[in-house]
Amino acid sequence: MVQALVDGVLLGGVYGVIATGLSLVFGVLGVVNFAHAEFLMLGMYVAWFAWRYLGLDPLLGSVLSFIIVFGVGYVVQRTLIERVLKAPPAAQVFLTVGLLIAIENAALMVFGSEFRSVSVPYQVEGYRLAGIFISAPYLYAFAAAVILSAALWFFLDRSWTGRAIRAVAQDPMASALVGVDTKRTYGLAFGLGVALTAFGGAVILPYITVSPTIGGQFVVLMFTVVVLGGLGSVAGALVGGIVVGVVQSMSALVFPIQLQNLCLFVIFIAVLALRPQGLIKGA
């Protein structure tokens, strides 16, 4: 029981970072990015190749994932997403769904359908603390997620660009009037959003194998986290991530493994129905 709780928190912290990216994109651009999980997959592949050919540990490779996917995201936003920012939701939904299908299958063509995993020395290690086993890869991924979240908070709160992003999220017109390049800021926010998710994907590589369809396994999870925390709320996404992580590992105690996701879906629909503004207000 306590064991499941600890595992859940460690898993959930990473879910938080993964979902923060999605939440950021919605909060700033007002677009629900259905293709978001595909950037997680890209981040995982970058980290895998960095491990395979550069010998980089995925925890370090995640920085590379962050940078490369940031660039990809910026280009995708400026060339595609930007053109539907003012379009009705249906157009946005289908543009990003089209993007999802295209990216997933592009990955299938380029990387092949086989599952790839890394092997790192600490993979099966862990720490014992008062009878609880703390898995090393879970712990390290959690720590990386916490560090990145802190960095994100610092960036959004202190840096000029971070403030510009928050300003554009609040009022694009007013920000443009005070000299913020809104188009560029949208691009940066989208790039940052997908890069956060890619980073999250990279740090979980030691305990999750990557394949072109991995995104599909994270789509609903990601949206559940974001909806729990309130769409557009960055802090909410972190809390939502931990809640989902705990729910997931707790439900594993009761239900067979296939039904784990079912729990998630039911929570997801229930939250949408009862509190679409999220469980945690503000932030």
């Binding site: 289908f94 543009l95 769904v97 089209g98 993007l99 999802l100 299908i101 295209a102 990216i103 997933e104 299958n105 592009a106 990955a107 299938l108 063509m109 072109p212």
Partner: peptide, 11 residues
């Protein structure tokens, strides 16, 4: 995956 890729791109 190429045909599915084309499908996504058309969308």
């Amino acid at each position: 995956g190429l045909s599915q890729f084309v499908f996504g791109a058309i969308l």
